[in-house]
Simulated assay, not measured.
Amino acid sequence: MGKKQLNVRVDESTAEMARERAEAQGISMNQYIERLVQQDMGETGRAFVDAAAQFMKEYETAFVAEFGDADEAARGARR
């Protein structure tokens, strides 16, 4: 996968903190920022899946009443 250049503006103290964190981890500033974004996406993805699971748990009865049991429908489609 190719790389895309991004230009961002942050205040001086934020830039310095990012430089220090990257240096402490022994990685470049680019790698540090890339990891932060990837971690954020992972956390967002997990939060979405957790919320979707909770939603389905809360509304499962309503879905079954409206659309029927998915497992039962799948078994019927295989016959």
Rank of each mutant, 00 (worst) to 15 (best):
A24W: 02
Q38G: 01
G76Q: 11
A15M: 10
S28E: 02
R46G: 05
L36P: 00
R19Q: 11
S28R: 03
L6M: 07
R46T: 10
G2N: 12
E12Q: 08
Q25G: 06
D69H: 08
K4N: 04
E16G: 00
M1T: 12
A65T: 13
Y32G: 01
Y59T: 12
I27N: 05
M56G: 01
A15R: 10
A47K: 15
A53I: 06
A65E: 15
E72F: 02
G42L: 15
G76V: 06
F55V: 01
D11W: 06
T61L: 04
A70G: 00
L6I: 08
R75K: 14
Q25C: 06
M56R: 02
I27G: 04
M1H: 07
E12D: 15
D50I: 10
E34L: 04
Q5F: 05
D40V: 01
A18S: 10
R21K: 09
A53K: 10
V8R: 04
M56A: 07
R78K: 14
E16T: 14
K57Q: 07
A53E: 10
R75H: 06
Q39Y: 08
R19D: 08
S28D: 02
M1W: 01
Q54L: 12
Q38F: 11
L36W: 01
T14C: 03
N30D: 11
R21H: 13
M17N: 05
K57H: 06
Q25I: 00
R9N: 13
A22N: 08
